[in-house]
Design a binder for these strands. Structure first.
Length: 566
RNA sequence: GGGCGAUUAGCUCAGGGGAUAGAGCGUUGGUCUCCGGAACCAAAGGCCGUGGGUUCGAAUCCCACAUCGCCCGCCA
């Protein structure tokens, strides 16, 4: 029997290895085999090619110029000083120009599976975020129309990023900023008003700047149904502002419903209107005036954002005395800062990228470092059907709404599709592909892996075989290359989450899942889990159970259902 | 004209200083007496947009250029 080798406790293999190399380096320095004064940080990477081991380091190549010796000589000196007291190393090789390749004992990999069993739903979580307060603001669509597919991508990215940040120990607040003030509300009110007049038989032309969508007619219809023609007698301006409030509330309600159907819940809804009402907007501009960032020109007040590298200064108060959208966003971000977040993340459509420098100016003018604000720009979505782009036009009133897409392909497929690509790649979203129930559809591919395992576990149970615990499994029976590949993939999972959190790249989850599902399917097709060999069956049951846990955890982060059957 | 992003297999995209470049789709050819074929295996397919740099080493970093998308308002 091989030793269980659990002396390593909960320490991660990478950290163990780093310690080993560090000790070897200081040993070399003591013995005079190396002349460096300071031991540099050790980079450990996982080589692409299996023959290059589980981890490799370029440390010898980095030291070469300082040591004035060949990297390979340095590497062998370091290798000779290695003491592997926990017995995690199978071998160390020096290869290529001077890489040190480390091969980890298979026992170590196999024994690490127990951690997944013990942690269960918590496997993959960490405390790396140290409880720091993070605000993620996303969607924040104006309540002037239904959410479209671009908002959907922002919603998915924001929601899953928030899940990832939570998983690694950040204290996350998800927030939606409602632009329920300003010109657009007036326009909204007017749009409804004109439709209202139409419905009551008045022949007036709908101004081109008005919102043209069918949903405006619906709202006008509601008003007619409830109140008839009584608004015809009131002054237009009063009616328009009433209608604006009514429409905004109604649209916002729809937005909330669509988001909820999409699996997205916000912790805080901030309203621009309340910032106006509580004078926060004028306070914020006053504050900037006092700090000397505001000047007057052509009757308007300007924020000197060029002080912070913006290409031109920006108006905060128009010559007519009305604050701009920028002014209210200043107030909103001042409010964010006052709430003492350690990090602020804004998720915007890439068409707003020109706004980034001025927002960073705000943060700095208010005395913070611009690094605490992270603006994630999400590129646009091309809605496709069978490879053809679906026309999209708000002007014509034809919407490709999030709601329609979710109804057509389902929440799971929609969320998954939005997260398949890096945020700074444009995304082709093919509706027909998202509905397909075969291997062309990545969502099904991953969900199927989960269902497949459940099916095996179910069948095993019917045969009186419960999934055993680690102590009852001959873990070293998991000896096939595919099994070790699968195990290593499972053990990579915590790093994937952490990497995704620090890089703010939620799409790493789908990339990882696709990989894991593929390894499971491949293993399954080549080998039988349930067989006449009972000890082997138990070991393999244990393995697939661990795969199931990781699939489930990762899908949970994505907000995608992990089906037992499909 | 300026800014941001993209440019990797026929298509859609991963990979963001390391050793022999990755996946899915598509193409071609295989795998069902066997736990879910919604799956698997194999083959073909690449000057990583172009040209310069930086270094032991570049698809990756820097500078030009080209092409595509999006932005450049006292709109939001």
């Amino acid at each position: 029997m091989t030793s269980r080798g659990r002396t390593t406790g909960k320490m991660k293999i990478k950290d163990i290895l780093r310690d080993i190399i560090n000790s070897a380096l200081s040993d070399c320095v003591q013995k005079g085999a190396l002349s460096i004064k300071v031991i540099p940080a050790i980079e450990l990477e996982t080589p692409k090619i299996q023959e290059h081991g589980d981890f490799s380091t370029n440390i010898a190549m980095i030291l070469a110029s300082e040591e004035k010796r060949s990297p390979r000589l340095i590497a062998s000196a370091i290798a000779e000083s290695i003491i592997d007291k926990d017995n995690v190393l199978a071998k160390v090789e020096i290869a290529g120009p001077g890489f040190m390749n480390f091969f980890i004992n298979n026992d170590h990999w196999r024994n690490s599976l127990e951690e997944i069993e013990i942690l269960g739903d918590s496997y993959g979580k960490s405390k790396a975020g140290e409880g720091k307060k993070v605000q993620v603001e996303f969607v924040s669509a104006n309540p002037t129309g239904p959410l479209h597919i671009g908002h959907g991508r922002g919603a998915a990215v924001g929601d899953v990023l928030a899940n990832i940040l939570k998983a690694v120990g950040y204290d996350v607040v998800k927030e939606y900023y409602i632009n329920d003030a300003g010109n657009q509300m007036e326009t909204l009110g007017r749009s409804v008003f004109f439709r209202y007049l139409h419905l009551l038989g008045r022949d007036v032309a709908l101004p081109s700047e008005c919102y043209q969508g069918e949903y405006i007619v619906d709202i006008a219809n509601d008003i007619v149904a409830k109140h008839g023609d009584r608004y015809l007698d009131e002054p237009d301006s009063k009616v328009i502002s009433n209608f604006a409030v009514y429409a905004a509330d109604s649209i916002l309600e729809g937005i909330k419903e669509d988001l909820s159907d999409f699996g997205v819940k916000f912790d805080v809804w901030s309203s621009e209107k309340t910032f106006f009402e509580s004078n926060k907007i004028s306070e914020a501009t006053e504050d900037l005036k006092k700090k000397g960032y505001i000047y007057q020109k052509d009757g308007a007040f300007w924020f000197r954002t060029t002080d912070f590298g913006d290409e031109k200064d920006r108006v905060v108060i128009r010559a007519n005395g009305q604050p701009t959208y920028f002014a209210s966003d200043i107030a909103y971000h001042k409010d964010k800062l006052e709430r003492k977040f350690d990090m602020i993340i804004n998720i915007w459509g890439a068409d707003h990228h020109g706004y980034v420098p001025r927002m960073e100016s705000v943060i700095q003018a208010l005395g913070e470092k611009k690094e605490m604000l992270n603006i994630l720009l999400v590129q646009l979505v091309n809605l496709m059907r069978n490879g053809q782009q679906v026309a999209m036009s708000t002007r014509s009133g034809e919407f490709d709404t999030l709601k329609e897409v979710v109804m057509e392909v389902g929440k799971d497929a929609a969320r998954y599709f939005f997260l398949m690509r890096s945020s700074d790649s444009q995304l082709d979203f093919d509706l027909e592909l998202a509905k397909k129930q075969n291997n062309e559809n990545p969502v099904y591919y991953v969900q199927y892996a989960h269902a497949r395992i459940c099916s095996i576990l179910r069948l095993a149970q019917e045969q009186g075989l419960n999934t055993p615990g680690f102590e009852d499994v001959g873990i070293d029976l998991l000896n096939l290359p595919e099994e070790l590949t699968l195990i290593k993939q499972l053990l990579k999972y915590p790093e994937v989450i952490e990497g995704g959190a620090f890089a703010l790249e939620p799409h790493r989850m789908t990339v990882y899942l696709n990989d894991l599902a593929g390894k499971l399917h491949s293993y399954y097709n080549k080998n039988r889990v349930l067989s006449n060999d009972l000890p082997l069956t138990r070991a393999r049951l244990y393995l697939v159970k661990m795969v199931k846990i990781v699939l489930n955890n990762a899908l949970h982060i994505l907000g995608v259902y992990a089906p037992e059957k499909m």
